[in-house]
Design a protein around this nucleic acid. Structure first.
Length: 436
RNA sequence: GGAGAGGUGGCAGAGUGGUCUAAUGCGCACGCUUGGAAAGCGUGUGUAGGGCAACCUACCGAGGGUUCGAAUCCCUCCCUCUCCGCCA
């Protein structure tokens, strides 16, 4: 793996080290709720060892500094000076030795700290498996979709608009061409999503779609999910798996004035995912692609407000599905299906009437200070005057291909055309999409 | 891609081996002064870690090296600016 030039030491902590030291039982409870297997005692032991070592190194350094002050007063080349140099040579050697030990202890502690997940919020339901996620709400009438509806990839003419064959020839599986009304529908949806996000108060940003290793590390793609990203050979840049990565890193290593919070931003990017390990039914048609388009919603907020902001974020994403008149449901993820970094997460799933499956089109999460600590995004508290970590939230608003899948499956007319929801007509320019 | 010049606190800017614990100025905060304000004067003004008290340690683009000692010397990389080349 490419070793990026970032200060790895500050990345030691994803969880607050003080929380671990003072309330290890809370960390244990969090790990249990997420059904992870992490040895908290081992982490604590490494922390204790590290603290002992840093104290020793700092003591040696202070000896060196004190000697330096003395030596300034001595005449260079005098017997006293020469004696002092000899004496400090020994201290210096010892300091070097201890420093390299400390470096190892730091690395071990960092590795261990990275295994500690974020604490789930109290409102997160217990559960291990995806089936244990709580159906939080259901909207629209699933039964209204024709029983004769087909999976979108079986619709006559589908390949004309979504050309997987030529995409595979030109690039590979999972990189379709969008042609004619297919391309136009994609563009209409993106335009619709961005306009709606703007109305909801999100400032539009067009970010870089390649990021460096430091950015991918700050949002958690590295080191764990390295195999899921496309990486450039010469420059060690990563194609973004989601706009969350460049967007979150916008404020990396910055301290914001408290009064600018909350900050709302949105961005459209293509998203690139290698999807190593995916297989089976899920990958048919537009369900799972290596490149897809998505609008991401992102918030940097005051810690006191982050759960209200999560509800608002979810509502902003839901609003898009309501306007598209698509049946959908909201899942509240259980502890075991929550994800490593999230404190609470809702998934929005749209009904694919042809596949007769729910398709995930958005995932709205509160990371609390977990990402912010890793990315060092803070605000200056008016109350204390001190920098404090912000809370970050993000959610899709929305991912395009599965929305297209649902529109094709649910809205297919007997004449073979697809009727578009009225909210989309101004963007698409016509009421019907045609496969001819 | 080639040549050159740079990167120091919120900003400007000094510092080329040793009290640098980083000058000075601006900005900012507080105080004095004032009827009130400005000016003036004074004090303070980074981030992180350890101890959780005094205090100690680290950070001068990043990483490594030389040295008893590095903002300062050496190496590698990144970024910015100027000129040239190439190119949407």
């Amino acid at each position: 793996m490419f070793i990026p030039c970032v200060s790895w030491f500050r990345l030691t902590s994803m969880l607050d080290p003080k929380l671990l030291r003072e309330s290890p039982e809370r960390v244990r409870a969090a790990i249990a709720k997420k059904h992870l297997d992490v040895d908290v005692d081992a982490v604590l032991a490494l922390d204790t060892a590290w603290r002992a070592q840093i104290q020793e190194v700092e003591h040696l350094r202070s000896l060196q500094k004190a000697a330096n002050t003395e030596m300034v007063a001595l005449k260079k080349g005098s017997p006293e000076f020469i004696a002092k140099v000899a004496e400090m040579k020994a201290v210096s050697a010892r300091a070097k030795e201890k420093e390299s030990e400390l470096t190892l202890a730091e690395a071990a502690l960092r590795q261990a700290m990275l295994t500690l997940p974020n604490l789930p919020h109290a409102s997160v339901p217990e559960g291990r498996l995806p089936e244990e996620n709580q159906v939080y709400s259901t909207h629209g009438d699933v039964a209204s979709v024709s029983a004769a509806a087909r999976p979108h990839w079986e619709i006559s003419g589908f390949e004309r608009l979504f050309d997987f064959g030529r995409g595979a020839k030109v690039t590979g599986a999972g990189f379709p061409f969008y042609v004619g009304d297919g391309a136009k529908l994609m563009r209409a949806l993106l335009q619709f999503f961005l306009e709606e996000a703007g109305k909801a108060g999100y400032l539009e940003v067009a970010p870089p779609i390649f990021v460096n290793a430091a950015s991918a590390t700050a949002t958690g793609q590295l080191p764990d999910k390295e195999g899921q990203m496309y990486e450039t050979v010469h420059d060690h840049l990563y194609a973004v798996p989601t706009a969350e990565v460049p967007l979150t890193n916008f404020f990396r290593d910055e301290i914001l004035p408290e009064e600018v919070l909350p900050v709302y931003r949105c961005a459209y990017t293509p998203c690139f995912r290698r999807e190593a390990g995916s297989y089976g039914k899920d990958v048919r048609g537009l369900n799972r692609l290596h490149q897809f388009d998505k609008v991401e919603l992102l918030k940097w907020v005051h810690p006191d407000t982050s759960y209200d902001e999560l509800d608002k974020l979810r509502n902003d994403a839901e609003n898009l599905l309501r306007k598209l008149e698509l049946p959908y449901r909201v899942l509240l993820m259980c502890g075991g299906d929550l994800g490593f970094a999230q404190a609470k997460k809702f998934d929005l799933e749209v009904w694919g009437g042809g596949q007769k499956r729910w398709l995930e089109v958005s995932s709205c999460s509160n990371f609390e200070s977990f990402q912010a600590r890793r990315a060092q995004i803070r605000y200056r508290s008016k109350e204390s005057g001190k920098p404090e970590l912000v809370h970050t939230l993000n959610g899709s608003g929305l991912a395009v291909p599965r929305v297209i899948a649902a529109l094709l499956e649910n809205n297919l007319q007997p004449d073979g055309r697809v009727k578009l929801p009225s909210a989309l007509v101004p963007y698409f320019g016509r009421e019907f999409l045609s496969f001819d």
